[in-house]
Simulated assay, not measured.
Amino acid sequence: MEISILNTTKLKNVPSGSGLVKRDNLYYVIGDDSPYLFTLDTNFSLISKTLLIDTAPHLNERIIKSEKPDFESLELISKNEMVAFGSGSKSPERDAFIRILLEEDIQIERYQITDFYNHLKTLPLFQDSELNIEVVAFQDEQLFLFNRKKNLILTFNYLNLLAYFKGETDFPVHDITEFSLPKIKGIEAGFSGATTLKNQSKIIFTASVEDTNNAYDDGEILGSFIGMINIKNHKVESVYSYCAIPNTAEKLKVESVTIEEEISLGKTKVLLISDDDLGNSTLIESMLLW
């Protein structure tokens, strides 16, 4: 696997980019300290923003760390539906699930999912881990939630999980897989973004490395990776391929990935978004080969 960077674009008025989705000729972005869903055109110019959650007062579009919902994950479910999750790394501020309905006007459904996150914390693989949901991906009715450090992927049937969030059913059946990711300077990368290919049963994921020992505090940015995981029988396989994402003028903390174009088998143009922990967001057009 190899990735080459084609172009980079600094985003204006879109802070702390953490989630990215392409839908037709529009791009949707969330930031981990912003209450908005940002809509961009094909030139990556901001054309609108939609309030996702009512929050404490914010300055220059950014919410103070102790109050932020920490939106880290965004994914397209269907042509007319997206979902976003708060990370759950601080309760109750970050215990949010947002369902975004892309009709003529964007409609927002908001759910407080503290009970769901508390249940995850009781699972055996979470016993020596922090809860930090950084990524969501979707394919064939299956929703994949990625926890960062410990690196876990939880697989749910999306409609069953949505029914649980609505209070219509018990905690749904799920599958959970643990991963060991590559390291930089002895520090293991943590899942940061993902999406699925449309023409293959594969997840493209990103992972980044920060010099920090917990899910709450930022640390020195050391670099990022991109990789691929196969899906078989609606479950993720535990093996993966990967390569390092080359740094630009600065070390990249890549936060999310979306598909620009599946050119051919083994060749896909992807768009990444990075966050420098200072509130700046950069889009990175890249070509991925495997």
Rank of each mutant, 00 (worst) to 15 (best):
L131I: 11
L278H: 11
F71A: 05
V83Y: 06
G223I: 02
I221L: 15
T50A: 00
G167Y: 03
F179S: 08
V209Y: 09
S241C: 06
A56Y: 14
V257T: 04
P35W: 03
G86C: 03
D70S: 08
E141P: 00
D275R: 06
G19K: 04
A244T: 11
N233Q: 14
I187K: 12
T196P: 00
S286T: 12
S16R: 03
R62K: 15
T169M: 02
S87R: 01
I184W: 03
D115F: 02
K267L: 12
S224I: 02
S87K: 04
T114R: 14
E262K: 06
H174P: 02
N132Y: 14
Y242W: 14
N118G: 10
N80S: 14
L161V: 02
N230R: 13
S91R: 08
N25A: 03
K149Q: 13
I53Q: 11
G19R: 06
S45V: 02
I259N: 07
L143T: 00
L145K: 06
F116Q: 08
I64C: 07
F97E: 05
L181P: 10
K251R: 15
I226G: 04
Y111T: 02
K22W: 09
K185W: 01
L154H: 07
D95S: 07
G19E: 05
Q142M: 12
K121Y: 03
L123E: 11
Q127E: 13
A194Q: 08
P57A: 06
L74P: 03
N132C: 10
A84I: 04
L152G: 10
S91T: 13
G31N: 07
V135D: 04
E250W: 10
R148W: 05
T282H: 04
K232Y: 06
E262H: 07
Y216C: 00
F225W: 12
I187M: 10
L143F: 01
G31T: 05
S87P: 12
L159W: 01
Y36P: 08
K185I: 00
S238E: 15
N233D: 15
E260Q: 12
D32F: 05
N80T: 15
K269Q: 14
Q112Y: 14
P57V: 04
R62D: 04
E178L: 11
